[in-house]
Design a protein around this nucleic acid. Structure first.
Lengths: 328, 328
DNA sequence: CTTTTTTGTGAGATCGATTCCATGTTTTGT
DNA sequence: ACAAAACATGGAATCGATCTCACAAAAAAG
């Protein structure tokens, strides 16, 4: 491999001059420049980032920690992050936790050892060990999707958005609304959305039927199973169901269709999350769109701000949109 | 930041001993081990990968170049890659070209400067400059989706799979089949799939109607526009349409439904690519499933093999599956 | 009881860049 | 014409690890 020393020798200048040329700082004569350029061209020399980073303490790499890459939400967010990072000449080191929360902590350490300039964390929990790991970390971290003390974060308006969509259901005349949620270790999805649901029902003096509140995970299958559970539990059936993710809703719709139920005539379905699927399934799903790509963009911008100075901790509550479609 | 020197001093041993401890090679007494362990624990020391890589010429990072992250295909492939890399303690540096082919070359250089141990290239073209860049690169590269000379690659059976699905259409009684393709700069999708289509029609002595062969890009919208173009062009309408991607097919279906056509009664639709959407759209799409995640797994395994010895260039033609569903 | 062998440790070179500083040469200002 | 400023260059330290080698002490072998 050719190094800066080889270039220096071939171009008959010193290592320092080559470095000055490469980084375009300090003085380099036209003559020397030309020679160096020529030699670099001929040898196909590529500077070693490892050596550079060792000296400068900067890698130009941002670590991204996410639960799972192969979900539409994740890939949208990553798309947004990527766009900003690329604009700012950063690269993205991607790690996925496969929903194992210990890995989030492990990766924070690992990314630090890789000397990344900052971390974007799409967290699925806010447990104490994770908080500790974040506080101990000596580099900028921005969280997306959950809120953490002492670091900047971009959070989705889980509570308010849920309130709006539930209110919309009620306004449309649905009174018996079922809820398919997820575990509470994910505060944003598991707690906030449920709180939005419960509070809105209470506000409208609607009865909350515990039999109609079930818990799935994030999968289509769990949506199917959850609504089935509701269906088999009781004689009285809901006339609407809200699912905390659109994947869950898709599974639920599958079951409902199998029961020969008309959506939304017999039962309305609404959810959070605007995947392609939610748009093209029939009937098209009424959902909350959290504009994931945008959120990724904002989070990345926040992180870069923080890397390049700006110490302020910012909490940004991201925008959302209620997409009224045909399932309600 | 604490370095190995600090640890050495605090544990009252030499730098070398700490290094031996960290890498678990050479002799370290139990006593020294204990002291080092304690100091590391107390200080929260994290070794610098930059320094390590500078010495060892290994980073434990694999570069992945892909056209676009936010497609289902890409995220499935990346999921598969990630799984294998994680198992082998590699990290993934992700770059996206946004379909700009010069960027593929740029990123090959960039990733080299980052001293990645290998590159996984999901290419969308096989132009000369790209081939040159690959040949000049002095590190293992594995391509996925397109074939390149002199490097290992995992390729999809574009030709054979297309033949099978077209044959299936014919067998089902469809004789007037339209084709929505993409540009020929993408040989795998643009040329091979078209060739499979044409050859199969010829083999069955079916007329190839040039008016029924149009070109879109990879988007849903282009599917809509393409089938519309076919529809408005001619008095005679096809009774089936094959699209080279399921996204295109979804767009086409949208148009066909708007024309009050029954799928598959009035017109059958088939495509390549088994997205979630293709499964849940109505009617569910008959497609070729290229098992993208699996392909990612195999490509990653191939690359790791190549990094750890094994010099053989392998061309692997990946498996596929014809999913017979309701759109045919 | 010597001779090997094994165990344990540290000094110092090295990887490939950046950067401070010293030194010399031009150019500019007055 | 002479001091000051600008230009140009190279030497050498440095970043934080690895790793070869030399050397000494302890254990095993003869």
């Amino acid at each position: 491999m050719t190094t800066i020393n080889d270039i220096a020798k071939l171009a008959e200048v010193s290592r320092s001059t080559v470095s000055r040329y490469l980084n375009d700082n300090g003085y380099v004569s036209e003559d020397a420049k030309k020679r160096i350029m020529k030699v670099i061209e001929e040898t196909g020399y590529i500077p070693s980032q490892s050596a550079k980073s060792l000296r400068t303490k900067k890698t130009g790499v941002i670590g991204v920690i996410l639960p799972k890459i192969s979900t539409e939400t994740a890939s949208r967010v990553v798309g947004g992050i990527n766009q900003i990072l690329q604009q700012n000449d950063y690269q993205m080191l991607l790690t996925t936790t496969s929903m194992e929360s210990e890995k989030e902590i492990e990766f924070i350490r690992l990314l630090q050892s890789r000397n990344v300039d900052g971390i974007l964390l799409l967290a699925t929990n806010t447990e104490k060990p994770l908080i500790n790991a974040i506080e101990k970390a000596a580099l900028p971290i921005v969280a997306l999707g959950q809120e953490f003390p002492n670091i900047s974060s971009v959070i989705y308006p889980d509570y308010n958005a849920t309130r709006e969509i539930i209110a919309y259901l009620i306004q449309k005349g649905y009174q018996n609304i079922a809820f398919i949620g997820v575990g509470e270790d994910d505060p944003a999805v598991g707690i906030e959305r449920k709180r939005g649901f419960v509070d809105t029902l209470n506000q409208h003096q609607l009865m909350i039927n515990e039999d109609w509140i079930v818990q799935g995970d994030f999968s289509i299958d769990s949506g199917y199973d959850s609504i089935k559970e509701i269906w088999n539990k009781n004689n009285k059936k809901p006339d609407a169901v809200f699912a905390v993710t659109d994947q869950i809703a898709v599974g639920a719709m599958q079951f409902l269709k199998e029961q020969q139920l008309q959506i939304p005539k017999d039962i309305a379905v609404a959810a959070t999350g605007a995947s392609r699927l939610s748009q093209f399934i029939e009937p098209s799903l009424t959902v909350i769109d959290f504009l994931n790509k945008e959120a990724g963009v904002i989070a990345a911008e926040l992180l870069i701000e923080e890397i390049t100075g700006e110490k302020a901790i910012k909490k940004i509550i991201h925008d959302y949109r209620l997409l009224k479609r045909n399932s309600v």
